[in-house]
């Protein structure tokens, strides 16, 4: 499995943010999702590109988080959820019968709205995922942990207290730790569910910088409430409204010249 992962993970220079015409990496085709009888996502088709930040925006309850959670199949955890349609990541149908969810989640990492570090030390938080995936030797662990903490711009702040509890960190630090934890196992895609919504402006700015940094190496899909944030960090933006995809285009286009009236109303703050 490590073999299949490596080629994609070699950091390569990213070409300038491309318009949504290049070869798609995540293909969402006609996805509908039901909670019991109610339909939360309505026939959504969208193609996301590799090593690009795509933002999902829309008023609350529009299904953007739900769609995000479909991408690493976290919706499997909820009772009574049913999904139609297909989602392909890197050409593999992730809802196919032979797919191992565990393997999928290894390749598609996730950062949650509320930071959720394990009640362990900072070191152990990052080591947890690595150990799960077979990194056992102390030296390997040490290097990988330092690497990912540095990538998450947290290393300088915590290098002296790696073995103290992660719960002692500030909210922003905790969230960056969660990002470090997610990137430590070198996923291909990172899903972020409103990662900065509970943080103060300074911590938010650091997370945003970090995301811009990380897109060199990872494909990032971020759900956000904050339209300025979407405008600042994303290359492409998808606007959702009550379970439907209204518009998907480059961020510049969405925020300056949207094709749909509803998009324009939303981004200009007329509703939502």
């Amino acid at each position: 499995m490590a073999e299949t992962l490596t080629p994609k993970l070699v950091p390569k220079e990213i070409s300038a943010a491309s318009a949504p015409t290049a070869a798609p990496f995540i293909e969402i085709e006609g996805v509908s999702l039901y909670y019991g009888a109610s339909r939360a996502l309505k026939n959504i088709s969208v193609h996301l590109e590799e090593k690009v930040v795509t933002a999902f925006i829309g008023p609350s309850g529009c299904g953007k988080s739900t769609l995000l959670r479909c991408l690493n199949r976290m919706n499997d955890l909820i009772d009574g959820v049913r999904i139609e349609g297909s989602i392909k990541i890197g050409g593999h149908d992730i809802y196919a019968k032979d797919v191992d969810v565990i393997e999928l989640r290894k390749r598609v990492g996730m950062v949650f709205q509320k930071s959720n570090p394990f009640p362990k030390s900072i070191y152990e938080n990052v080591a947890y995922g690595l150990r799960l995936h077979g990194v056992k030797a102390k030296s390997d662990l040490d290097t990988r942990i330092e690497e990912s903490l540095q990538q998450a711009a947290l290393w300088e702040e915590v290098k002296d207290r790696l073995h103290s509890s992660a719960l002692g960190l500030s909210g922003g630090q905790q969230q960056r730790l969660c990002i470090a934890r997610a990137i430590a196992i070198k996923p291909e895609v990172i899903l972020m569910d409103e990662p900065a919504s509970a943080l103060d402006p300074i911590a938010t700015a650091r997370i945003e910088d970090l995301i811009l940094d990380l897109k060199k190496y990872f494909t990032i899909v971020i759900v956000t409430h904050n339209m300025q944030q979407a405008a600042r960090i994303s290359d492409h933006t998808a606007f959702f409204y009550i379970g439907e995809l209204v518009e998907f285009a480059s961020t510049t286009k969405i925020f300056t010249n949207p094709a749909q009236k509803r998009t324009e109303d939303y981004v200009s703050g007329r509703f939502g």
């Binding site: 959720n116 394990f118 009640p119 947890y128 969660c178 997610a182």
Partner: peptide, 23 residues
């Protein structure tokens, strides 16, 4: 125990059993 911890572990690719035993 907050659901967030279980989700965090599962999202890292832990199996259910690993999540239960380790987290």
């Amino acid at each position: 125990i907050p659901t967030g911890l279980r989700e965090a572990s599962l999202a890292l690719g832990a199996t259910k059993l690993e999540t239960i035993l380790k987290i």
